[in-house]
Design a protein around this nucleic acid. Structure first.
Lengths: 149, 149
DNA sequence: GTGAATGCAAACTCTTTGCATGACT
DNA sequence: AGTCATGCAAAGAGTTTGCATTCAC
């Protein structure tokens, strides 16, 4: 069975958490699993809804606490796509890294990857003498479907 | 006397507003002036503080309404730098266009420009068949000053 | 004079915090 | 057993909205 990026992340997140002395409770564990099974960014509310759909009724506060911790540990990235709320997605070290195009009309979020963009950003950060722990790129506009109308 | 990008923006913003049938009240006018005199992004609260310092006591709600309108008209861009709040900056059509590097330690925001990055993004948007009305790039990390420590 | 613009206060959303309870090691 | 994790409810920050008043045209 092939390793997937998400199961790798799930395993390494669990390992990092336990190495840092954190216990394995139901709430944080559920958040880790949910994030691992998601390809793109999720808001705290969306995580809560997804989990409730699976019969796991986790308090929103615990979800925020779990996300905070994972973010501090560098295991998730915080993404803001312009709707006033925050979203989170797993950080796979050395792995796939994507950004987001948001449709101003329908609100759909499209993920995209581009190596040249990444390289350009690395170069830029060097030029600015600004270390880069992460970066967000958000494209606003109309998606292919909405632009057609 | 040389034209500056900001005074151009101020004039064109005023023109666009009056062309759209908006009256010239004190609050919106003050917001336009404040934005024009600022090189980088400002939050609603910061605009309010700046204006109060100049003796203009403008209600926060009016500032938000002015920013909303300017944003809808494409005269300002909304920027989120990861602190949970929104910032706004003038959009100078065909003019200078910059992005932001945020220091995770001291919170300072550094603006930067890069033409190749812009070109790359244009190309990318075309590839995604996603029209691009705007885009944000935020680099997170430590600024030169904080990284030294 | 008429309708848009403004200010205030209340409402609203997203997020964080305090505290008592429950669960992992 | 001891301590961290969790849930609930309340608090907080940022933003939006309702409504009466004021002001630009």
């Amino acid at each position: 069975m092939a390793h997937t990026a998400s199961s790798d992340w799930e395993a390494s997140a669990r390992e990092a958490l336990s190495a840092a002395g954190h216990r394995t409770g139901g709430a944080r564990e559920a958040v880790v699993v949910q994030l691992a099974h998601q390809s793109c960014c999720l808001s705290a509310q969306e995580i809560s809804d997804e989990l409730r759909g699976k019969g796991k009724d986790i308090g929103l506060a615990s979800i925020y606490r779990a996300l905070d911790l994972l973010h501090e540990m560098g295991l998730v990235q915080r993404v803001e796509i312009g709707d006033g709320g925050a979203r989170y997605e797993p950080v796979v070290p050395g792995g796939e890294h994507h950004h987001h195009a948001v449709c101003d009309t329908c609100g759909r979020v499209t993920a995209f990857e581009d190596d040249r963009l990444e390289q350009q950003l690395e170069r830029l950060a060097g030029r600015l003498r600004h270390s880069m722990s992460g970066h967000d790129i958000v494209i606003h506009g109309d998606c292919a479907r909405c632009a057609r109308k």
